[in-house]
């Protein structure tokens, strides 16, 4: 049995009142609830305020480059399928710089959990519009207002038949913990887009704004119906549904590659000279 204490507590580089604190708590709690030991978990993050989160708990960590958490996580999971691999980073990191990896990871359906701290802004670089910033969002870089339409990650993931698509809110800790737990348990790619206020740079989507606009999906809601799920994923800002929006049982990358070699990839395998001779024989 693992406990919250196993995951430790650290001093952070976040602003007081930041949504990251409750997300971190929910992540730790979810790991305990899933009964995972710190050494069985690998966090892969990018760069940004959100991407620092793995430094603030006990686990294996690869804190890579801005936008590149998913490819590193993919390589890691292929190399060692026994690890629980969690990619964790911001909205800018995952939907902007790493947008192509986001699409590819959904298609590939490798067994990775992606946690996106979605504060709708580039926090670390001090407030420029991110892919999820609303149209008209004003910043020093967008003085006339953000001219672009926001990216809707849960709708895109639903259209692409991602295995598990959820939206959480940093202000709903218990609910968020449960979503993260389900995402980890899901065999295949899972997305939890986590709505989060940025106390320093997002004056529009504040804590109380989210509280007013977020609605939990009801128990009667059926997340297995893709068309229905898409309607929910595309609901406008006045009613932001949170919960498991869509899920399916699409075979994961590993299941499709079953019989191939992934189990043998990592570890201290002795070199097999006989097999190598077999390979060389192709060239006589």
């Amino acid at each position: 049995m693992s406990t919250l204490k196993d995951y430790g507590s650290f001093e952070t580089a976040w602003c007081p009142g930041c949504g990251n604190f409750s997300i971190l708590k929910a992540v730790k709690q979810a790991l305990v609830q899933c009964n995972l030991a710190p050494h069985d978990v690998l966090f892969v993050s990018g760069i940004g305020q959100a991407a620092k989160a793995p430094h603030y708990l006990h686990a294996n960590v690869f804190n890579g480059l801005h936008g590149r958490s998913l490819p590193v996580a993919t390589g890691a999971k292929l190399a060692n399928p026994h690890l629980t691999v969690i990619a964790e980073s911001g909205d800018g990191c995952n939907y902007g710089e790493g947008g192509n990896h986001f699409l590819a990871a959904i298609r590939r359906n490798i067994d990775i959990t992606l946690l996106v701290h979605d504060n709708r802004v580039y926090g670390l670089t001090k407030g420029q519009a991110s892919p999820t910033s609303p149209e008209g969002f004003v910043s020093k870089a967008q003085p006339d207002g953000n001219p672009s339409l926001p990216f809707n990650p849960v709708a895109v993931a639903t259209v692409m038949q991602a295995g598990f698509v959820a939206r959480g809110f940093a202000g709903e800790m218990a609910h968020l913990t449960d979503l993260i737990c389900q995402a980890i348990a899901h065999k295949g790619f899972s997305l939890v887009d986590i709505l989060q206020p940025c106390v320093s740079f997002n004056r529009l989507n504040t804590f109380s704004w989210y509280q007013e606009h977020c609605r939990k999906l009801e128990n009667s809601y059926d997340p297995t119906n893709q068309r229905g799920a898409l309607d929910v994923a595309m609901m406008d800002e006045n009613r932001l549904p949170i919960g498991v929006i869509y899920r399916n049982k699409r075979p994961s990358f590993k299941e499709k590659a079953e019989g191939s070699s992934s189990e043998r990839a990592f570890g201290l395998q002795p070199f097999n000279q006989a097999l190598f001779e077999e390979v060389l024989a192709h060239y006589y």
């Binding site: 480059l65 998913l70 390589g75």
Partner: peptide, 21 residues
């Protein structure tokens, strides 16, 4: 794996190598 682009390819390799492959 055939990656989505070369950026992904090199990062996947680093992830795999980090884990001992």
């Amino acid at each position: 794996e055939q990656a989505e682009d070369e950026i992904a390819a090199v990062n996947m390799a680093i992830g795999a190598s980090f884990c001992g492959a």
